[in-house]
Amino acid sequence: MAEEIIRLGNADIYQQETLVLKEVNLKVLKGEFLYIIGKVGSGKTSLLKTFYHELPMANGDGEIMGYNLNKMKMSDIPLLRRRLGIIFQDFQLLSDRTVQKNFEFVLKATGWRQERAIHERIDEVLNLVEMPDAGSKMPHRLSGGEQQRIVIARAMLNNPQIILADEPTGNLDPGTSEKLMVLLQEINKEGVTIIMATHDYEMIRKFPARRVICEEGQLKEFLLPAEPLDFDSILLEG
């Protein structure tokens, strides 16, 4: 049996003073592919933020890759984040420098020293998202979809054990979305755990996997079969 890589037990998740998710119990196994679904504002992003310790956990306990989310030292936060590949919903690209420099910053911040190795890795991830020439461009010169792909490439830089993806297909056209999903599936096959918050039910249908749903302040397993799902009703509810 595969080992647990994330475990939350009775965790309450607050955004400022508001309780977003109550008594969350979640176990994610190493190498698993997990969708987090739910309406807008239901707490999907907050849950992901808890994983990278941007939101503190008020009650309950949690562990991710051996890091205790309750009693995390300030100096451990960067170390945790380095081992995660995070695809932020709002990109979080450094707006004052080129894509190349953005990636260099990440690599240098995480201990890479050799310029040649750095450049090779940057070329690799840019090829992965099919944007080999984007290195010299400033983030604001790229379209939303292009920025999205750059952020995905950045998340891959350090060969993370977990990829946290917050609406990664939100800004992409269906064709590119599908390519991205294929890419994520391939990465997942190599043993990387992938947690993806999404609205994109079309993609869930095409690439079925375990789903959890944020609903009424709680996180539940979503056990309905993927195929005969009535997407229209879910969308209408949302």
Binding site: S75, R81, Q92
Partner: peptide, 16 residues
């Protein structure tokens, strides 16, 4: 915001 983004991608305080 830049400083915040730098923290999110795993840079230590002193590196930033």
């Amino acid at each position: 915001y830049l400083i915040n983004s730098m923290q999110l991608v795993g840079a230590t305080r002193s590196f930033i």
